[in-house]
């Protein structure tokens, strides 16, 4: 069954997809830099009344813990990436590579850019995991 994006179920399914992924196990191995929080900016016309945060405790190719969080909590993570709904949808569809998205200002990063650019493989593997989550987009019937 497809899960609404963003939702608590989607975050849980993403967590599982990460831990089941041989690509992330390999590509995410060098990631030892702490929690990455992803934030979908508020968009009331889609029913996202408040920014929706996803807290992902990633470490050496494994997602150790995940939960839905507020934008405020997300900003306490060492890495926090903000974006509009349409941008995240592009990321999940593999139409927008997240590091490029940051370069273009389509996604906003709070955190060390140097660590991000040298871990593009981990980012790529995370996107692959996201594509494996059966997703129901809010702007689609």
């Amino acid at each position: 069954m497809a899960m609404k994006f963003p939702s608590d179920e989607w975050v849980a399914a993403f967590h599982n997809a990460i831990n089941e992924s041989p690509e992330y196990k390999e590509g995410g191995k060098p990631w030892t830099f702490g929690v990455t929080a992803l934030v979908v900016n508020a968009q009331p016309d889609l029913g996202i009344n408040e920014a929706y945060g996803m807290w992902l405790d990633l470490h050496e190719g494994v997602c150790r813990e995940s939960h839905h969080c507020t934008a405020e909590e997300a900003q306490t993570a060492p890495f926090c990436i903000f974006g509009d709904y349409a941008r995240w949808k592009q990321v999940i569809h593999k139409e927008l590579e997240p590091v490029k998205g940051m370069m273009q200002g389509k996604l906003k990063l709070k955190g060390n850019l140097q660590i991000i650019v040298r871990n593009v493989k981990a980012a790529q593997a995370l996107v692959t995991c996201a594509t494996r989550v059966p997703t129901q987009f809010l702007d689609e019937p």
Binding site: E97, V99, L113, Q114, V117, R118, N119, K121
Partner: peptide, 12 residues
């Protein structure tokens, strides 16, 4: 990181 900032991205 200079003009060489995105070499890993380039590799990808």
């Amino acid at each position: 990181m200079g003009t060489d900032s995105a070499m890993d991205l380039g590799m990808m």
